[in-house]
Design a protein around this nucleic acid. Structure first.
Lengths: 135, 135
DNA sequence: AGTGTAGTTTGACGATCGCCGTACTAATTC
DNA sequence: GAATTAGTACGGCGATCGTCAAACTACACT
């Protein structure tokens, strides 16, 4: 495990006009039509990735990778976000030093109507049943 | 988890010989409460297993393993059915020389309301999009 | 320029996966 | 009892998975 300093706080700087934009590196995303159900199910079958998706679903805005504070190393975190992006579950863009993440709700709902909501509801129900234990 | 071994004796009572009943060997199934969302999603993320589940969902009666005719070997077929059983997606019983399979709809619907239907609908939709490809 | 922050890349590791063939067990039928 | 049918157990193989540490790149802010 790494020690991740648990920031969890909002940025105080306003970054007004010079808001960092998507720059430099580009990320590959599958087109909507290329998203495959089996890849999405596989992506969601990992507890870490499910956790990311659930957190993303609760927020309306984009979240940087660093706010998630997963109990794995940085490189593993990178790996999980990449899996989620490459299978079409999330959208990622660089913004300054951060990499912002958002659920591809529209695409997923268009391809698999109601699926994401049911998965999220199922995860919440199970967490209730099992008391948040992930063992 | 398996390796139940020593099913040993426990002979079945000879019933009316015209209809084979569940007999001899016993199969372990997880209790409803023990079914985990991540295991179900993982099970469904394999094309062969998804195919089995979709076929099972279309039928109202039990189906033997042999009617599926998956494009893999017998031992691989056994493997996939076992995965589906051990994660709680299907129920299996021996009936004579055959092993009958049924979806655990009630359990899945109780634990994860609407999830199975959405997954099945998503699979059907994707099959439509991608043309008859089912694997 | 220097320091710090955020995330990537590489290579490795053990575990698991999907797959196979062979040999086996169990129930039914001849 | 022998043959048949249906499925299992036992490795084994190559691929993928989740994980890590170490070294690296890219941007921001002194």
């Amino acid at each position: 495990m790494q020690t991740q300093t648990t920031p969890t706080v909002s940025r105080s700087q306003p970054q007004a006009s010079s808001q960092p934009q998507a720059s430099g590196r580009s990320l590959e995303h599958p087109r909507r039509e290329a998203i495959r159900l089996e890849d999405v199910l596989h992506a969601l079958s990992d507890p870490m990735r499910m956790r990311v998706v659930r957190t993303l679903a609760e927020e309306t805005c984009e979240l940087s990778c660093s706010v998630f504070d997963l109990p794995v190393s940085k490189s593993t975190t990178t790996h999980h976000f990449r899996v989620l992006r490459e299978c079409g579950v999330i959208h990622q863009i660089y913004r300054g030093t951060a990499k912002m993440n958002a659920l591809r709700r529209d695409d997923l709902d268009a391809l698999f109507p109601g699926l994401l909501d049911r998965v999220l509801a199922a995860a919440a129900l199970q967490e209730g049943r099992l008391g948040g234990d992930r063992g």
